[in-house]
Simulated assay, not measured.
Amino acid sequence: MRPWGESARTELWLLVREPTTVVFALALPAVFVLVLGSVFGDTPDQGGDVFRGVGGATYYTPAYIALAAASVGLIILPTHLAGYRERGVLRRVRGAGIPVGAVLFGQVTVATVLSLLGGALVVATAIPTIGPDTADDVLGVVVTAVVGALAFALVGLALGAALPTARAAQGAGILVWFVVFMVGGAGPPEAVLPDAMATVGDWTPLRPLVTALQDVWFGPGWNLRLLGVLGAVGLAGAAVAGWRLSRD
Rank of each mutant, 00 (worst) to 15 (best):
V123Y: 14
G56H: 01
G187H: 05
L159M: 12
T125R: 07
R91W: 08
D195M: 03
D202E: 12
A66S: 13
P194Q: 02
D195V: 02
L117T: 11
P220Y: 05
P78V: 14
P205W: 06
V54Y: 03
I174T: 15
G73A: 08
G5P: 07
D49N: 14
R207A: 07
V138W: 15
V210M: 01
V16T: 10
F40S: 07
V72F: 05
V54F: 02
L213P: 04
G53V: 00
W217K: 00
V113P: 01
L150K: 04
A238E: 00
A158W: 11
V103M: 12
V72L: 07
R17N: 08
A30D: 03
I75F: 09
T79S: 14
R225W: 13
G37F: 05
A25I: 03
Y64R: 02
I127H: 05
A169R: 03
G140E: 12
V183R: 00
V180M: 02
L224Y: 10
L12I: 04
F178H: 12
G41H: 13
R207D: 00
R9V: 08
A186Y: 01
T204E: 00
R2N: 13
R2T: 15
I65H: 06
A135E: 07
L150T: 15
G47I: 05
L139V: 14
L139M: 08
L150P: 12
L81T: 08
V72W: 05
G101E: 12
T165H: 12
T61Y: 10
G95Q: 09
G160T: 09
R94G: 15
W203Y: 15
G231N: 08
G101T: 10
A158K: 04
D49M: 11
